[in-house]
């Protein structure tokens, strides 16, 4: 801008920049599309707007229960029976935070007549797995998923007053920024290698996310991680949080269930099955039995096969979600088909 600019030239310049940004976003969305995912905020909104019978609290795996909820509503002929609250990258301590700070005020909210505004709520299902019981180690404040995914504005302001803006609470604004531009692939993928690697794959003519060598290496890393899980499962603070979640749920008079979420079969070696998976089963079932709540282990006990999981090996894909929903309501979760007898 060496020569003096006019408002017209500034407008044309900005229009050119904006046009290219939009064009690039549209084109890159074809190469590296982003999938809008159900987040905790969506669950809170649904809960606030409705009066469900079942609340599902858990990590990103809770998204699978959103599909299950739709199937349940179809079978019982009643909409909005189940609301899932998925906290991405969650652990038991953050689940407890969500229950206490975001859900409890809504559960116990009363109307002008003094009765609960969401009086239909009868059940709470906690979705978990071994990873949720391992604590983060290392410097800084853990549970960075909370500011971004679970905080309301007041939590952000209070934290900034306490500590100033830091790398922990900035996750709140980072996610707000991403939510504001939900449809922009440039914003959603910013700073990750997603776009660059997608373009590279497209140029190389590679149809899959990984080459066979990369796939083998990725699978090996997963297996190693699951096998190593037995060294961290059952972190005291996570188990305390688990007990508190169940205690809170029971104190609200809710029919409470702990569900261990299905894992991709290929990621579970015999060593992992006998170690991490078995040990966590005993740990979680022990707590559930002690607290008197229902316990269902679906880690490997569903008809989901490897093709029902996403490329990340962690989450169930759309086909798998439908398969899981139909199977679960015919089997281990069939009790959801009947309205519960208890009253809060």
């Amino acid at each position: 801008m060496e020569e003096s600019s006019t408002w017209k030239s500034v407008f044309l310049c900005a229009a050119g920049a904006l046009a290219l940004l939009v064009l690039a976003d549209v084109l890159l969305a074809r190469v590296a599309p982003t999938q809008p995912l159900r987040e905790l905020r969506d669950g809170i909104s649904d809960f606030r707007a409705g009066d469900p019978e079942i609340l599902v609290l858990g990590s990103s795996h809770g998204r699978t229960f959103h599909v299950l909820g739709q199937e349940l509503s179809r079978r019982r002929g009643a909409p909005g029976l189940l609301v899932s609250i998925p906290l991405e990258n969650g652990k038991l301590v953050p689940y407890e935070w969500v229950l206490k700070n975001r859900l409890l005020p809504l559960i116990t909210a009363t109307g002008t007549n003094g009765e609960r505004m969401r009086g239909n709520l009868r059940r709470l299902i906690l979705i978990t797995e071994w990873w949720d019981s391992c604590s983060f180690t290392g410097p800084g404040r853990p549970y960075w998923n909370l500011p971004g995914r679970a905080w309301a504005f007041e939590h952000y302001v209070n934290d900034v007053i306490d500590t100033g803006v830091d790398s922990y609470n900035k996750n709140y604004l980072d996610h707000l920024y991403r939510r504001l531009f939900r449809r922009s692939v440039l914003v959603q993928s910013r700073g990750t290698s997603r776009i660059a690697s997608s373009v590279e794959r497209m140029i190389a003519g590679q149809a899959t996310l990984r080459t066979p060598e990369e796939e083998a290496s990725y699978l090996a890393a997963w297996r190693k991680m699951v096998e190593a899980g037995e060294e961290c499962i059952g972190a005291p603070e996570q188990i305390v949080a688990l007990r508190r979640i169940l205690t809170t749920s029971l104190s609200l008079g809710l029919d409470t269930t702990v569900v261990l979420f299905p894992r991709k079969p290929a990621t579970i070696t015999a060593t992992a099955a006998a170690g991490t998976i078995e040990q966590f089963h005993h740990l979680a079932s022990g707590v559930a039995t002690e607290m008197g709540v229902r316990f269902i282990d679906l880690t490997l006990g569903t008809p989901l096969d490897d093709s029902d999981f996403m490329d990340d090996y962690d989450h169930v894909n759309a086909k798998g979600n439908r398969k899981f929903a139909e199977w679960a309501l015919d089997n281990d979760l069939s009790f959801l088909l009947e309205p519960p007898a208890n009253t809060p």
């Binding site: 801008m1 060496e2 020569e3 600019s5 017209k8 030239s9 500034v10 044309l12 310049c13 900005a14 229009a15 050119g16 920049a17 904006l18 046009a19 290219l20 940004l21 690039a24 790398s167 900035k170 980072d174 920024y177 440039l186 914003v187 993928s189 910013r190 700073g191 990750t192 776009i195 660059a196």
Partner: peptide, 26 residues
Amino acid sequence: FALPPFVRGLTYGAVIVFLMIKTPVA
């Protein structure tokens, strides 16, 4: 700088796209 403003804008847009692909926020 002698280029039409709209064309210069396209180059700025390209730079922003590049930055958004290559640099994370903060």
